[in-house]
Simulated scan of single mutants.
Amino acid sequence: MIKYSAKLERLNRSAFPVAVRQTLNDAAFMTKQLVPRIAAQKFTTRQKNFFRAFSIVQKAQGFNVNGMVAVTGIDATKGSEVADGLEQQEIGGTIVGRKLIPHDMGRISGSYSKKVKTKNRFRNINIATARNRKPGSKHVLIKKGSGGTVFEVKRLKTKTKLTPLYVYRRTKKSSVQKRPFMAPSAMLARSKMPMFYMKHAERQFKKALM
């Protein structure tokens, strides 16, 4: 790589900075491309493009090699609460979620990896409690200690069937251990940078010969 750099610097003023800039940008975009694959190894992803949508690249610019930087990060413009949660997953910390956590029985096919059934989403259920009874409601929250469960109530001919839909907790905060997905993606992309650099250096050499 040193040999390539010395030759580039002798070509013209822009050849070396352009090769460096394009190398950094290639690494940043490869990091973004790798994020969904790395995240899938650590998280249950119910929305196929979730991690790709929340990953953003800020490209390297200009010709000052010493100040050149390309960044891959989490896009807070897509939703600040989700972005903050992803950041805490990356480094570890406390995330703010909901008091009601979907139970597997409320999901499609009763599977943890599936989305909540449409009929079981918050906007479609009317939850009754001991203090707030709602005549005709088919959903009830039964509390026990610091937690509880939201059940769907079905009255059959000979019995009443209770199906758990949500787990209740008194706090919205949860402590999470770090499960990095951005840093491992960046490390893999970094290992490809010599290849990227040689590709862009060769391109500058060919351009000079035209």
Rank of each mutant, 00 (worst) to 15 (best):
M198Q: 13
I127W: 06
H139I: 03
F63G: 01
L165W: 05
Q89R: 03
T158M: 08
S55Y: 07
R131D: 15
E202Y: 08
E81V: 14
L86D: 09
E152M: 06
P36W: 11
A183F: 04
A201Y: 05
S146G: 07
A27C: 09
A28Q: 07
I38E: 15
P180C: 08
K114H: 09
L24K: 14
T158P: 01
I101C: 06
G73S: 15
S113W: 11
F181G: 05
D75Y: 05
T160L: 13
Y197N: 01
G93R: 07
K48P: 09
R121S: 09
F63A: 13
S111D: 15
G73F: 12
I108N: 04
N12G: 03
V96Q: 08
A183W: 02
V71W: 00
K207C: 01
L8V: 07
K99E: 08
T44K: 04
I142D: 00
A83R: 05
N66H: 13
L11V: 15
S109W: 02
K206P: 00
E152F: 00
A6V: 11
T129L: 10
H200Y: 14
F43I: 11
L141V: 05
T171W: 00
Q177G: 03
A70H: 09
T94V: 11
K119A: 09
D26I: 01
S146F: 10
E87V: 12
S185N: 04
R169I: 10
L156E: 15
V116D: 04
T23S: 15
G106F: 02
E87I: 14
N64K: 13
S14V: 03
L11I: 15
L162G: 07
K32L: 15
P17K: 12
S137G: 08
M68W: 06
K99R: 12
G79N: 07
F50E: 10
Q177A: 04
L34C: 01
H139S: 07
R46P: 00
A201L: 10
I95Y: 02
K115F: 00
N126C: 01
Q33T: 09
V71G: 02
K78I: 04
R107Y: 00
A128I: 06
F63T: 13
F181R: 02
T160P: 08
I108H: 05
R133L: 08
K78Y: 09
T94I: 09
N66D: 14
G73T: 15
K143C: 02
P36H: 05
H200A: 05
Q88H: 07
S146Y: 08
K178Y: 09
R203M: 03
P194L: 09
E87F: 02
N25A: 04
K172S: 12
K42N: 10
M187E: 15
T171N: 10
N124Y: 13
